[in-house]
């Protein structure tokens, strides 16, 4: 039975050649397209919408680091995303930190939370891992519901955007966009760098065959935990950035449907692909924007996309494109 099982997020076997920043040629071209889009789009599209896409893209990339490269499905990433948002909002509003420090605070709290939850969750794998992360994230949700600093049902509202390094005011959407774009690209490249480092090679070895990685002398649990903490930290950064963009941190971002949403984005784009999470985030955020007037039907449509992806479209958009072009994207 075991050898017929197709692991989640197993990439197509394509010859890997090292190139620019460790990208293959096709990936370097795709990265060029991505950077060009990030640079040009604010002149044509509404910056707040684009910033939302970039925040979710970073969130999805962080999630994909776990599922795509370590083979762990976390169903609790909303905890890091939402908590990052709360901490950044609190730091910017109550402590009066500058935006970059507030975002760093969000990422730090995300990583600490990730250390705790990851430390528990890596004791089990597969389905249990998903259930444990979901349950622990729900605990974080209840904490946020009751803790005084989160403002309960109201959330933290009117979060000031402040001035970058205390010097550059970010009140204009257009200025803030470049900060968000920088955070996203930095996070994206960091993930890419990690995946292509010796550390990343061990991570992939753990996904492919954990007993063998253990027998080679690697403490696989340590690697899983480090990947989990990194993923949680980036999710916290993404959540914090989103809180600054919208000036609000609410329970929605920390509740379990948000964990499902990030799974959906990554699934639509392509589990385990480099660019899939970005495409998936763009698709889902766009969809939510245009379908907002349909109310509860959005949930139904998301469910249908979930089912369709799992049944017929497991490679996702980017995975399918890569498959057609015979390249790894």
């Amino acid at each position: 039975m075991a050898d017929t099982t197709i692991a989640l997020g197993t990439p197509q076997a394509v010859h890997e050649e090292a190139g620019f920043l460790g990208f293959t040629r096709a990936q370097a071209m795709a990265f060029g397209v991505l950077v060009a889009f990030v640079l040009i789009s604010p002149f044509f599209l509404y910056p707040v919408f684009l910033m939302k896409v970039l925040c979710f893209a970073l969130f999805a990339c962080a999630f994909n680091l776990l599922i795509g490269y370590v083979g762990l499905l976390s169903f609790g990433h909303a905890a890091f995303f939402g908590m990052g948002g709360y901490v950044t909002a609190h730091a910017a509003k109550v402590w009066g930190l500058t935006p970059e420090l507030a975002i760093v605070a969000g990422g730090l709290v995300g990583s600490v939370l990730g250390l705790g939850i990851g430390w528990l969750a890596i004791r089990r794998s597969g389905i249990y891992f998903a259930m444990i992360t979901l349950a622990m994230a729900q605990m974080v949700y209840f904490f946020c519901l009751q803790a005084p600093f989160t403002g309960g049902e109201d959330g933290i509202q009117q979060v000031p955007r402040g001035a970058l390094f205390g010097a550059v005011p970010l009140d204009s959407d257009f200025t803030l966009y470049w900060v968000v774009a920088f955070v996203f690209l930095a996070g994206f490249l960091l993930i890419h760098r990690v995946v292509h480092s010796p550390f990343g090679q061990v991570m992939k070895a753990v996904r492919e065959n954990e007993p063998r990685a253990t027998s080679l002398g690697y403490r696989t649990d340590d690697y899983k935990l480090m990947a989990f903490v990194l993923s949680a930290a980036l999710a916290g950064v993404a959540g914090g950035t989103k809180a600054l963009v919208f000036g609000i941190a609410t329970l929605t971002d920390v509740n379990w449907p948000m964990s499902g949403e990030v799974v959906l984005m990554t699934l639509v784009g392509g589990l385990g692909t480099v660019f899939g999470p970005v495409v998936g985030a763009a698709v889902i955020v766009t969809m939510q924007n245009y379908l907002a007037e349909f109310g509860a039907w959005v949930t139904v449509i998301q469910g249908v996309i979930f089912v369709a992806c799992v049944l017929a479209f497991r490679r996702g958009v980017v995975g399918e494109i890569g498959n057609i072009l015979k390249v790894k994207l």
């Binding site: 469910g303 996309i305 979930f306």
Partner: peptide
């Protein structure tokens, strides 16, 4: 798990 999650949403 993913399939049944989608079904639950629907």
């Amino acid at each position: 798990l993913l399939l049944t999650f989608g079904l639950a949403l629907i």
